[in-house]
Amino acid sequence: MRRMLICGLAAFGWATTGLRAQPVPARDLWEFPLGAIFEPPALASEAGAGLWNPATVALPTGDRFRFGVASLSTGSAQGVDGQLLAAAWRRGGGTTVGLSVARSAVGGLVRTESDPQSLGNIPYQSTLTSFTVARALVPHLTAGLAARWRNGRADQLTRHAVAADLGVVLHDLPWRDARVAVSSFLWRPGREVEDRPALVAAADVRLAGASRAREARLGYTESAVNRGARERGPFVSGRWDRVEARAALVRATAGAGAATRVRSGLALYYARYAVGVAREEGIAGLGPVYQFTLSSLLK
């Protein structure tokens, strides 16, 4: 459904007045789960960015630095691609400070006039820079804050805005090592109606196993954009030493439309490195979305 919204822009064209009604262009691009196809957005920590939930950027005791990259692509000439670069540093007092830069764009949009001949490409893209702070407040509770600067461009229109987000993660709970996470995304106080912030949430429990290195988990994820797309569904994960596999069945709605799709992925852990590959199946005749992540923890 998310890609139906974006590719609909290319298929049917934009109304100029509609584009200018957006406070910052290309807000729709941040409905794509950049860095969060392998994991639910509210719990996504694989790329080490805290992009969707600033609380997930917190590093555990004993780790000092984390670096990560993520890349997302629809694998077609006309589709969405995104990149993410992140770094985090755990200070001596236990606070983790993070910085990430993310970019998302639609490619292959061709400008024409009265005939089909191309007159060049139409830029439609957005860049999001986030400064994040997170730390454990009490046992089992980690909270994070993020200050964000977003720039968007649609053809000749370029604008920017500042947003702030708050996220929390309840973790290592006594009942089946349960986790619960909630966060805002792109919240601009007083501008909620026109700039459409999102709320992301997820929870999971351990079904089997005795440690994070050998376990099976079951959970549920949900996210909602104000006056925009909503998605929800169950997910499962399993890890055995260096290998982790995940799958989610997500139901997405936008207006009167709805679609169900599968997300799946595989991650390999070696020493202080983690490499992940994930896939979201295509809908409405569109190709699948692929994601690659790489992260490293340093002591």
Score class of each variant (00 low, 15 high):
2 R>W: 15
9 L>D: 01
12 F>W: 11
13 G>Y: 15
15 A>Y: 15
19 L>Q: 05
23 P>Q: 12
29 L>G: 10
31 E>P: 06
32 F>S: 03
43 L>Q: 08
49 A>L: 03
56 T>F: 14
58 A>H: 01
59 L>H: 04
60 P>M: 00
62 G>K: 11
68 G>W: 04
69 V>M: 04
72 L>A: 02
74 T>C: 05
76 S>K: 06
77 A>K: 11
78 Q>P: 07
84 L>C: 04
88 A>R: 08
88 A>Q: 07
94 G>T: 01
94 G>I: 00
95 T>R: 13
98 G>K: 02
99 L>R: 04
106 V>M: 07
109 L>C: 06
110 V>Y: 11
111 R>T: 14
112 T>H: 11
113 E>W: 14
120 G>H: 12
121 N>P: 08
123 P>S: 09
123 P>R: 03
124 Y>C: 06
126 S>V: 09
128 L>W: 06
131 F>R: 02
132 T>F: 13
139 P>T: 00
140 H>M: 12
143 A>Q: 02
143 A>D: 02
147 A>P: 08
148 R>E: 08
150 R>H: 07
154 A>T: 05
155 D>F: 15
161 A>Y: 00
162 V>H: 03
167 G>T: 02
167 G>K: 10
173 L>C: 13
178 A>H: 13
178 A>K: 14
179 R>S: 11
180 V>D: 05
182 V>A: 11
186 L>N: 06
188 R>W: 11
189 P>M: 08
190 G>M: 11
192 E>A: 11
192 E>C: 05
192 E>G: 06
192 E>R: 10
192 E>V: 07
196 R>M: 05
197 P>F: 07
198 A>V: 07
199 L>S: 03
204 D>N: 14
207 L>F: 11
208 A>C: 04
208 A>S: 06
209 G>S: 10
210 A>E: 14
211 S>T: 15
211 S>E: 06
212 R>T: 06
214 R>N: 11
216 A>D: 01
217 R>V: 05
217 R>S: 00
222 E>W: 15
222 E>M: 10
225 V>E: 01
231 E>I: 01
235 F>V: 03
237 S>F: 08
238 G>R: 06
248 A>D: 00
248 A>W: 13
251 R>V: 01
255 G>C: 05
256 A>F: 15
258 A>H: 15
258 A>Q: 15
260 T>L: 07
265 G>Q: 04
266 L>G: 01
270 Y>I: 13
271 A>C: 12
274 A>M: 10
279 R>A: 09
280 E>T: 01
283 I>C: 09
283 I>P: 02
284 A>R: 12
290 Y>I: 01
290 Y>M: 02
290 Y>D: 00
291 Q>T: 02
294 L>Y: 06
295 S>R: 08
295 S>K: 08
298 L>C: 11
